[in-house]
Nucleic acid binder design. Sequence first.
DNA 1: CAGATTACTTGTAAATTGCAAGTTAAAATA
DNA 2: TATTTTAACTTGCAATTTACAAGTAATCTG
Lengths: 143, 143
Amino acid sequence: MSRSHPRTKFRSGCPLNASVEILGDRWSLLIIRDMMLRGFRSYTRFLDSYEHIATNILAHRLKKLKGYGIVATQQDPLDGRKVIYTLTQKGMDLAPVLTEMVLWAAAHEDTQNPELICRIKKDKQKFLAAVRQKWLEDSSRTS
Amino acid sequence: MSRSHPRTKFRSGCPLNASVEILGDRWSLLIIRDMMLRGFRSYTRFLDSYEHIATNILAHRLKKLKGYGIVATQQDPLDGRKVIYTLTQKGMDLAPVLTEMVLWAAAHEDTQNPELICRIKKDKQKFLAAVRQKWLEDSSRTS
DNA sequence: CAGATTACTTGTAAATTGCAAGTTAAAATA
DNA sequence: TATTTTAACTTGCAATTTACAAGTAATCTG
């Protein structure tokens, strides 16, 4: 019953507003982070992440992200119970957004994971290329 | 009663999570957009923006953003009713985040404002420098 | 000084979130 | 093969948040 793309029009045509309507909540970007930076691909992995999302919220967010074409699903050929969640190209294109949000918080808030921040600061383009490369490799391994 | 900085600890130490907890809602980044890109500085200006935020939500968001040191307030010396809202350095440092979110939505969703997108695409660094420069000029004019 | 403006607050209904528990199908184990 | 476990959800309900409408206090304008 979930349509492939939520077609209720955005509140305005502003591109920032579109991003906010799609990603502006307390969980979506964290799920994308787990997929992009930690390589998580399954429901239970997302559940076990640091911030402890509730099961129903996770299900809703995954459905929404899929609806917007940010994540895609496939059945695990080796285990009929498992669903494999992957980032689409559209999802991967959020890498610069995540990166800038990480840099901003690292600069202005008390946060952890200094290795990641160092790596990004040292060479942002190289970091983005590496993230993208890892995604390409995982994609070829999967599909 | 509003403390200067919300000191309830974040759900995790992840810098992305900090950004999400501070900015991850449907309004905060739009208010920051109006200040950064449209030069809005007052409560009524924010209310009249495209997406039509409710008055109580706006008041809450402004309080929160002020609490996090993203916006600052001052009385208008020429009109005792008016409060002037400005972005702090911390708020201005969100420019790369907004920029990447604009680019992402422009690439993947049906949005408007092609001039802005063109300008960013043509030379991102130049765009960011210009936004920053405008802020500096407004700051000197104000304080 | 009467009316308008600015920056809010308050009340209330609707929607969303969070927590706990349950369900279904498939796989692993005894 | 029967039983238990696992994975991916769904359901019910209370608590929180959001949205809409209306009201208020201080200031300004004619």
